[in-house]
Design a protein around this nucleic acid. Sequence first.
DNA 1: TACCAGGAGAAAA
DNA 2: TTTTCTCATGGT
Length: 220
Amino acid sequence: MRLHAGRLRAAYRRMLAAYGPQHWWPGDTPFEIMVGAVLTQNTAWTNVERAIANLKAADALSPETIVSLPPDHLAQLIRPSGYFNIKVRRLRNFCRWYVAQGKIRALRRLDTATLRHGLLSINGVGPETADDMLLYAFSRPVFVVDAYTRRIFSRLGLMDGEPSYDGLRLGIETALGPDTDVFNEYHALIVRHGKDVCRTRPQCEGCCLRGVCRWHGEGV
DNA sequence: TACCAGGAGAAAA
DNA sequence: TTTTCTCATGGT
């Protein structure tokens, strides 16, 4: 899918000017970022923070500990993040794979396509979670597509129909050119904007994309 | 009270 | 193959 590079950049500049840098991803280590990526699936980040705090307090934020911990115990620790029974399985699947691959040191040596393929082979790691990991834990130039991206880009008139995940991702990556820093900030700004305006104030009054957004009648 | 959140996979059609 | 259902806590 082809996207208008100028309009993509215009929306980015507007949001950056309105909100400033978002400093994503919140996390002390690549592994913590990857754990957060699994825990935040369809879940508010504030709930994930509680779960990660519990893991840290229990000295359980390591792949070996997560794999060896009794599932019931792990479930109690991550309970605040919701879907805890499913996320126990997903976290354990991810951690088993992570250790088997040789952890961060070995994974960093893989090219992006191979690493992405490996992540997607894990039951519980879908395209968005894998791309969160690639972008924010491995600093690879991969654009993360989420529900907000579709909603906002659709309103901007940048998208036609309902492109596939990879169709939209590749379209954005091609239009913007490979730039890890821009991809990092852009996705964070989309989430920030989505939470701020597009859900709670559907009429976009005071929206930083006024004049860019299709809802206000004019394009860029 | 009802709705939603920084999705993914299984089950059903 | 495409659509629908399930998973669950915490904030608004």
